[in-house]
Design a protein around this nucleic acid. Sequence first.
DNA 1: TTGAAAGCGGTACCAG
DNA 2: CTGGTACCGCTTTCAA
Lengths: 331, 331
Amino acid sequence: MNLEQVARRAKVSTATVSRVLNNASVVKSSTRARVVKAINELKYYPNLHARSLAGGKSRTIGVIASNMENPFFFDIYKTIESDAHASGYEVVVANTDYRTEQLVTSVRLMIGRRVAGLAAIVSEMAPELIDELNESRIPVVFYDVGTPRPNITNIRVDYRRGIDKVIEYLHSLGHRRLGFVGHHAVLGPINERMKAVMDAMARIPELEVRTAADADTLEGGRQATRSLLANGYQPTAIICVNDITAVGALRELRERGIRVPQDVSVTGFDNVKLSEFCYPALTTVHIPRDRIGHIICNSLLSWTGKPSIADPELVIDPEFVLRDSTGPARQ
Amino acid sequence: MNLEQVARRAKVSTATVSRVLNNASVVKSSTRARVVKAINELKYYPNLHARSLAGGKSRTIGVIASNMENPFFFDIYKTIESDAHASGYEVVVANTDYRTEQLVTSVRLMIGRRVAGLAAIVSEMAPELIDELNESRIPVVFYDVGTPRPNITNIRVDYRRGIDKVIEYLHSLGHRRLGFVGHHAVLGPINERMKAVMDAMARIPELEVRTAADADTLEGGRQATRSLLANGYQPTAIICVNDITAVGALRELRERGIRVPQDVSVTGFDNVKLSEFCYPALTTVHIPRDRIGHIICNSLLSWTGKPSIADPELVIDPEFVLRDSTGPARQ
DNA sequence: TTGAAAGCGGTACCAG
DNA sequence: CTGGTACCGCTTTCAA
């Protein structure tokens, strides 16, 4: 089933069918009607590969994320998708599971697909990519990591500020013995969040902090919390790298009979929907995922081919959100 | 950057470069080495569109789901993706948000992409699709809805059995006044779950059931619960269409000071990870999402072109999971 | 083992 | 307004 068959049935040339498909206004309406009829009768659907090959473009934007299972990434993706659809673009996604190797594979796949734009919402990074991406001439937005380049825009959240707000608040409540629950991604923001904690510790001598890390999942948060408490350490507050791991932490604490926030305070990060629905509702830091999504999509689609007018690097300041999982330090 | 440039640099023909790319064994190893060198030096990545156009196939399988935000769908997707990757296939996804119109659009898009196989994990359905799909000759698996056809396999879970197990259990605990929290998808399994509840009510005269529905999200579950209780109705147990909405219900109940399970019991469905992590942990029904994913992928990739050897319709019996959100009926 | 060339299914330019 | 046709980048005979 192809253009030619449709053309034959409608008794026109393939060129005309193509025009109808791309609703060029030049086609006489009676002709158009015949073609449309033929298309429907034949249940014809254009071969997208042929289309993007011939056209040289692809009306598709690629999104690569570290962990779609985490609503943080998913929310950004959703926003991008809906913006893209609104502009007549399709979206194709890829997961890296925080694996650099997978990131490289995915990026190359996207290049191979000749996507019209690429958003990388990832914590990991591979230096060779920025070169390859540059030569590909594909507009790219990196969230969190990456270096600004001619066709690469950067967006990042000031995690340090976010963490500082959390620590400041906990400190004011009398917390001195802290725990940090991270996850296994060593690069990027996690590192930044972790470093922020370490720096705070250096800055405030009376602070003691121990850390543990596991997967970026509910279960991972639980495991990390378990190992954090394994050797008898008794923090009065646990700072989690994000909301998902925090919910995992809540569960571990609950099963140990440790009350939150009476016995220990817990904080999340990201402010995903779940953070209001878990029990107790999480004190966290809000990251405007919809705004990030809009900026990304906008930056990708408004690409002119020339250096963008907008800042090549955009930094977002996160907001502290107080809920029920934190309270005064015990003892 | 294309085959020809690589060919020129390696001083061979494009045919040979193509052979190297598809690692045909016929190429002399010294020649192959030259080509590989050229490819790397030029940072060449084959145009996937040209490839699948010329080859007539696409090494890509399509997955369409109703709501990727719900871990139920996401878990299935993850399994399919990992199986597909293991077999050298890529996966491209699409969301329908339970909208039939979007399903139609997505299916046509997949046909246009000439995917090697299509998995539709959806609750909605459009009759015209099965014809179009049939003519496309693409192997298809429908989960939940759809009619078996030459190239269409069907998988479904016996939701009725699952719901019956829940009701039976609640009934044995003395619950007579029930609530059902659904979501807005009118077709398919939801309907089946809802119908199962209704049928049970007819079967057991002493049962009273009222229902409410909203979106398939945490917030939706909360809203539905709110309207369920709005007019003073006081069920002793609330059956939720799935775990996500159940967690939403838990929150609404908590804010009203209604204790679970002392004052009212709550049940979920699906047994997603969150159901163990929320508080109280949900009594639910387990749906083996990994098994479903494996079956789907397997059925798609093992396609021979002829009617499959396996059953064209497969029904899965779900398992009851008892946790902490249910207890004896009060009063 | 390698090269030449005919498509794959569209798009878009140039005539008419 | 419509048709003819030269590509788009790659795969795949067919010969050499």
